[in-house]
Design a protein around this nucleic acid. Structure first.
Lengths: 175, 175
DNA sequence: CCATACTTTCAGTAAATACTGAAAGTCCAG
DNA sequence: CTGGACTTTCAGTATTTACTGAAAGTATGG
């Protein structure tokens, strides 16, 4: 009896983690299922197949497939092939620092760069104008752009740095 | 003719900025209208009333009101009352560093803290378990938690620091 | 008070997003 | 080849999220 307890407690905790992580992911603008699959794989001791994931999360094959592809696209999950088996298995990157770097780079690419493009374009069009209103507009756009430029560089640098180096600076900041 | 050109170019650039910023906001997980109102106010040389915003973005009163309230809730917009008028006017925080601090604090509160709560809860339940699987799970949860702990502190510190101090460190990182 | 100028709320509806499941596609072993 | 094991796609559908507009609420000057 007692040796049954531990696995159950684990299963429950894991189930809660997976379910809650879905909600968290949602708040981050990531879809629920994708976050849940990620949580599942992050805490799995072995790679899982599409069918195991479908079974575990009670989702359709299409849904599982799409979200797994997206996770692979992000670089947060990779597929592994077992010798002598056709089926594809999936495992998550578990190193937290590596995860962070991947997410940082991806956010830079998806969120910062397009915003900078928009700002640059609007800046171009207005920086030649001479009315006070136009100058004010132009200055505000430029201020946003300058800030994002720095942000972009910092994100790239952080994602390319050794964890230690970043942690030291982080510590410096917090004292 | 020539002195008509400038205002039009400005109007167009601004229109494009507002519209595109909505799309960007969407990619950031912020709703389109809220991002557009923010863009509008950020680049307005004077505070705007609800009616002006409705007119400009072609949206309903309810929509305008809700999103303005949300922006005020974030601290990115404040309402100003003109003496002798009942109507409420709105203006955005334009200082980019201040905007960044507000957003950082808010993201910490809305995105990091709830995730940490979940992790702590799941960690509690499993750290007493002795099976290898449970230990692995527990370790992974702990690794995530430790990382977010640092992240939380960094975000708070950054948002509380002088811009200069942070910029210096940013520069250090990028060299 | 009450008329008026304004703001908030919310039921109903529209639009966007996510999911299903079955059909089509791919790939390989025999 | 071809049969089966597996993956991908996508039209149709469900769910979630955002928006409208009118009614209800609030506050103030007269």
């Amino acid at each position: 009896m007692e040796n049954e307890e531990a696995p159950n407690a684990l299963r429950e905790a894991r189930e809660e983690f997976v379910s809650q992580w879905g909600t968290i992911g949602n708040a981050w603008g990531i879809n629920r299922t994708m976050a849940q699959i990620h949580a599942l794989l992050m805490t799995s001791s072995k790679p899982l197949s599409t069918d195991e994931i479908m079974e575990d999360l009670q989702i359709s094959r299409g849904n599982a497939n799409t979200n797994l592809r997206d996770l692979v696209g992000w670089g947060l999950v990779r597929s592994v092939l077992r010798k002598g088996e056709r089926k594809e298995y999936f495992e998550a990157e578990k190193d937290v620092w590596k995860m962070f770097c991947i997410i940082t780079r991806e956010r830079k690419r998806r969120e910062i760069s397009p915003a900078m493009d928009v700002l640059r374009k609007c800046g171009e069009k207005t920086k030649v104008l001479k009315t006070p209103e136009a100058k004010e507009f132009s200055a505000q756009i430029q201020a946003l752009l300058d800030f994002l430029k720095i942000g972009e560089r910092v994100m790239e640098s952080v994602a390319a740095s050794e964890q230690n180096k970043v942690m030291k600076l982080a510590f410096k900041l917090c004292t």
